[in-house]
Write a protein that binds this DNA or RNA. Structure first.
Lengths: 245, 245
DNA sequence: CAGTGGTCTAGACCACAAA
DNA sequence: TTGTGGTCTAGACCACTGG
């Protein structure tokens, strides 16, 4: 812990600059006069602080800046959609980062039990799943799967396309008479499993956030459920809560 | 990783039951025929999964069940306050758990830079801080510090008391003409530092959530900023977002 | 190829818990 | 006192990187 604190301190004090390689583990072994295993644990601590990125065979680099993106609750404003951008790209445009969306799968699937409950469909029903991976500056930060009731999507061919058109799927749904009343988001943070860590290019155990969003129409129906897994270090969430009675 | 998966599998399969001690590390060394260091790392993996709690000198126990509490965004409804309960206790009443609040400190402090910014006060200003620790079923789950502008609180003696009376500090503020318009919550999840883990009785590195809430009055002023640190495994957050234009 | 991080070993010593 | 987890050592071997 002492060694880790010293290294972190050197980074924060600017002795080690962003983009720079920090001393190798064997070098630290020599300078501190401790064994390799101890240095390994110290470096694991430094990594956990998020100030450093380690690559096997190369070394550890001071990270340029923890790239955090804001998720504010006004990202569902219609005015963002009418600008011709999906929520994700609308946000990225504000922060000046390169954003990319990779579509992993679009097609009918058997609905997972938890989603069926939220969508209000039968347990064995077929739904449309749209699974995609979001990248930011080339690194994956988020996987998201939208589930849509079949009877809602069957008349909207755009929802089967990789690119659903300007404004994203929410705009298409409103085009077809599904007017949204509200979105309900449920968040939970937990350590990542191994496969999740691999998907999001995280070290195993690094925190992830699971966010499940229900899109509720003015008729009270949940037409879409979006199940999202995010690298926790990449996001800050902001919600405005009216002080209702 | 293989050993960790096998142990986790045994827990999930019910071979190892909640409350039960799992085999000791030296026992695992014998059964798997690997060295102690390897077992240590495997157990660290199992711990990270959250299925197990380890106590030095005793062993590792299968955790009974992760007790999760909901934080819904309607917990600031005035009707909850008028019922004579603070937000925290109002929530706990719904979930049937024993809740406890321990006041750690109430008094004037020099305002932290980040808070000064949000409160809209000078950098060196004095503010009232109310620091408290929330316990659930006897274990700490959350620390929270409320910061209030001095000129707001100086006329409200209840805010200096351990128990500010029915409805909590928000009710007292509204009693004195500060009517709330909205609350803005900002969340971020990250691994816990050593001291944070100690405060919340977590294993170091387990995810925590930092939540900062600003209470905004109808006159547009932020009268309170509440800085909260929570054990991530204890909370699920839910927010309702109106589909505004 | 040399240097780096990643994993493992066998053993030592310490601190804590419970009988 | 015994058994537990927690930390460290000195050294081995492997896999990856980049010249």
């Amino acid at each position: 812990m002492q060694i880790a604190e010293e290294v972190v301190g050197q980074i924060q004090a600017g002795v080690l600059k962003p983009g720079e390689l920090i001393p190798s583990e064997s070098e630290l072994v020599r300078t501190y006069g401790v064994s390799g295993g101890t240095i390994r644990k110290a470096m694991a601590e430094v990594r956990a602080s998020g100030l450093v990125e380690t690559r096997h065979g190369k070394g550890s680099t001071v990270v340029d800046r923890p790239p955090v993106r804001h998720r504010s609750s006004d990202r569902f404003r219609r005015s963002h959609r009418q600008g011709g951008k999906a929520a994700y790209l609308a946000e990225s445009a504000q922060s000046g980062a390169t954003a990319e969306v990779k579509v992993l799968h679009i097609g009918p699937v058997e609905v997972p039990a938890e989603i069926a409950d939220r969508l209000g469909v039968d347990a064995a029903a077929q739904v449309l799943a749209r699974r995609r991976l979001y990248l930011r500056n080339g690194t994956p930060v988020e996987t998201a799967t939208s589930y849509l009731s079949w009877d809602v999507v069957k008349d909207i061919p755009e929802l089967f396309a990789e690119n659903p058109g300007g404004g994203g799927i929410y705009a298409r749904l409103e085009d077809h008479g599904h007017e949204f009343a509200e979105f309900v988001e449920t968040l939970q943070a937990r350590p990542s499993s191994k496969v999740e860590a691999a998907e999001l290019a995280l070290t195993s155990g690094a925190p992830v956030i699971r966010l499940v969003r229900e899109a509720v129409t003015t008729s009270g129906r949940v037409v879409e459920v979006c199940d999202t897994l995010m690298a926790a270090d990449q996001f800050v969430f902001q919600y405005r809560i009216p002080a209702a009675d």
